[in-house]
Design a protein around this nucleic acid. Structure first.
Lengths: 203, 203
DNA sequence: CGTTGTTTTGAGATATGTCAACAGGGGTGG
DNA sequence: CCACCCCTGTTGACATATCTCAAAACAACG
């Protein structure tokens, strides 16, 4: 079933909306992100993908991806043939459920991002995104007591949150001054979870 | 398989996140909407649902709905047992595909809403939402040359778009003055598609 | 005709955007 | 090892889209 291992460098495009839905990847190492690009260059980052996530889940449903998927860091992927993988998965109850779970988790996450962007002010959006990412990373063992690799730069965050890079910066700066987190050189360390949770809830 | 016909009045709750995933509805008549409610009363409307849409698709995957689903108008629903319906659907290729298509269409729509709210200014958001709804309504035969029943009030639109009702009003007002649409008493009439499309694209 | 909910409008406040300059770090080539 | 460059982060002054709050007009409805 596995078709091989592929590597991508930062910024490289892994999958496009116009690609045929013939391939699925699984992230072995590195981060990627999926974004919808508008005609004039604006883009909405719809999701960040971390090791263990699938890229091109929609291929399993015969659909091309919604957005463009690009590598955020040097990335190692396992490559599968969509048809092969699908028949493998739907052969067993476990497989079907795993696929369904992944699809739904993805949709749920997007709905929550929509809620963040639609209803929260800048500080709440940043806090909510960081907490959501930390939770996902922790489940997979990539976060140690709130400290983890965090490759997105402030422009990525801005595009994910519907903010401006400058404003993301001010917001992170403020969090740092309040002692809520440390952040430099691609590492994030969340110091005060409960305070960030409060901000995510109230702002 | 069908368990019965149910009716709901405006504002009534059809399904809650804490409900067990045992039921699926299909809208026979009327509109509903699904929204995520925050602790302090803010809410994000995630999707509007029109006749032909399913409510509680996630029940088929053993999951409770992401948000609260409420009736927007007097609504008539067909009610199904989730397990029965699932076994019916996955029995045939057609059924499986229909289910997958519905699930994916829903997720795709949410991703586009996220893009609207994250990247567009008020006029672009309103235009994009109206056009998306008109397209869905037209496919099902509920829009005649851009004219259709439109039950959401400006507060619903505001909650869907991450805007304030006052601002939705000003935006609609402006569209009307420009002759792009007519809108009163629960009816919408889109007069200038290409201009609205331009606004959706550029704003 | 009151009542209730929605739309419309205004004046003023503010969160966020814009733009531009500067700083720092890390790589690269000389 | 230095000089340079590029990318990202940081900061400031200023602009503005959108919000807030509140009042009034309007419409639907019993």
């Amino acid at each position: 079933m596995r078709r091989g291992i592929v590597q991508f460098r930062p910024h490289q495009t892994i999958m496009r909306p116009e690609d045929p839905p013939s391939i699925v990847y699984t992230i072995y190492e590195g981060w990627a992100y999926s974004g919808i690009v508008l005609g004039d260059g604006r883009r909405q980052i719809v999701s960040f993908m971390i090791p263990g996530d699938s890229i091109g889940l929609l291929s399993l449903y015969g659909k091309s991806p919604i957005g463009t998927v690009r590598a955020l860091t040097p990335t190692t992927l396992c490559m599968f043939d969509a048809n092969d993988m699908k028949s493998q998965l739907i052969a067993t109850d476990q497989g079907r459920e795993a696929l369904e779970r992944a699809t739904i988790a993805c949709a749920t996450e997007i709905a929550h991002r929509l809620t963040d962007v639609g209803q929260r002010r800048a500080s709440g959006r940043v806090a909510a995104l960081l907490l959501a990412l930390e939770a996902r990373l922790r489940k997979r063992g990539y976060s140690e007591r709130g400290a983890f690799e965090f490759p997105p730069n402030q422009e990525h965050l801005a595009d994910a949150l519907g903010l401006t890079p400058a404003h993301v910066n001010r917001t992170l700066m403020q969090f740092r001054k309040l002692g809520l987190l440390e952040h430099s050189k691609g590492r994030m360390h969340i110091l005060d979870f409960s305070q960030l949770q409060r901000i995510a809830r109230e702002d």
